[in-house]
C-alpha cells in the first residue's frame, strides 16, 4: 500500500507543481495518472521515489515514511521501486547489458560494481530480463543502436533487475509511435498481473480505458478526479484537459 498524503511541491522558481494531492495505491493496482503537460504528473511520480523532494506532505510505503528517509534508507526504498521514463534514459554509449545491469546497482557490491565487475548470476538475471522483453539477442549492442521501442523495453528490463514491488512509468509511450504503445504497455500489464504495482502517466484515453484499474487526474497540480477508468467519458475528459482538447485515439493509427 502506497499512501500519498497532502503532498505539495513548490519549485525554487516559485512554480507550484503539486497542490495538496492525496490518494492511496493498493498493492497490485495499475494506477494511471492523467492530465495535461505541466499538470504535475512527472513531479508526482518523482516525489514517490524522491527524485524530487516534496515541499509538504507525507508519502508512506507500507509502514515506511518515504519523505523522512535518510540517504541510506532512501536507496533501499528506491531499489524496490523501478522507474521507466518517457525518454528511456539509457546510457546511449553503453551496451544494452550494462544498461540492464545498472538496474541492479542498489544491490551490488559497491566496489566491484565501480570496477564494472558483475557476478555471473547477475549477468544471467540481466539476460533473463532481456529475454522477458523479447530482445535477448540485443544484449551486446550499443543502446543507441536500438529503435525507440526496443530502448524502452531495455528500460523495462532495467527496472525488472530491481525485482521491484512498484514500477513508476512516466509517460512510457509518449516518445514512441502509437502502434508501439500497446506493445510496451502490455509488458507492464504482464508485470502488473504478476503482482507488481504500476503507477503510470498516460495521455491517450483509449489506453487509459484499456489498462487502468484506477485513474487519478491532475489539473494545475491539483487532483481533480479519482476513480475507475470507466467513469472517464468524453465529457470528463474535456473537463480534465480543457475545452479545446481533442481526444486522440492510439488505436486509430
Amino acid at each position: 500500500m502506497l499512501r500519498i498524503q497532502h503532498v505539495s511541491k513548490t519549485y525554487p522558481n516559485g512554480t507550484q507543481a503539486l497542490k495538496d494531492v492525496s490518494f492511496d495505491v493498493a498493492d497490485g493496482e495499475f494506477m494511471v495518472v492523467i492530465g495535461l503537460s505541466g499538470s504535475g504528473k512527472s513531479t508526482l511520480l518523482r516525489c514517490i521515489n524522491r527524485l524530487i523532494d516534496p515541499s509538504e506532505g507525507k508519502i508512506y510505503w507500507n509502514d515506511t515514511d518515504v519523505t523522512s528517509a535518510n540517504a541510506a534508507e532512501l536507496r533501499n526504498i528506491r531499489r524496490n521501486i523501478g522507474m521507466v521514463f518517457q525518454q528511456f534514459n539509457l546510457v546511449k554509449r553503453s551496451s544494452v547489458l550494462t544498461n540492464v545491469l545498472s538496474g541492479r546497482l542498489g544491490y551490488a557490491n559497491p566496489w566491484l560494481s565501480l570496477l564494472g565487475i558483475w557476478p555471473q548470476e547477475e549477468k544471467d538475471r540481466a539476460l533473463k530480463a532481456l529475454a522477458r522483453v523479447g530482445i535477448a539477442e540485443k544484449a551486446f549492442s550499443r543502446a543507441d543502436a536500438l529503435s525507440g521501442g526496443q530502448q524502452q523495453r531495455v528500460g523495462i528490463a532495467r527496472a525488472l533487475m530491481q525485482e521491484p514491488k512498484i514500477i513508476l512509468a512516466d509517460e512510457p509511450v509518449a516518445s514512441l509511435d502509437p502502434v508501439l504503445s500497446h506493445s510496451i504497455l502490455q509488458y507492464l500489464e504482464v508485470l502488473n498481473k504478476e503482482g507488481i504495482t504500476v503507477i503510470c502517466s498516460l495521455h491517450f484515453l483509449d489506453l487509459v480505458h484499456r489498462y487502468a484499474t484506477r485513474v487519478v487526474a491532475l489539473k494545475d497540480g491539483m487532483k481533480v478526479f479519482e476513480g475507475s477508468a470507466k467513469e472517464i467519458d468524453r465529457a470528463k475528459f474535456k473537463e480534465i484537459y480543457g475545452e479545446e482538447a481533442q481526444e486522440v485515439r492510439a488505436a486509430s493509427f
Binding site: R75, F85, Q87, N89, V91, S102, L105, G106, P110, L114
Partner: peptide, 20 residues
C-alpha cells in the same frame, strides 16, 4: 536522464558517476 534513472535504481553517487 540516465543519471536520474540510475538514481532511481538506488545507486550511490559514485556509481552514478561511473555508470552514468
Amino acid at each position: 536522464g540516465p543519471l536520474e534513472a540510475l538514481q532511481a535504481t538506488g545507486a550511490n553517487r559514485l556509481q552514478m558517476v561511473i555508470y552514468g
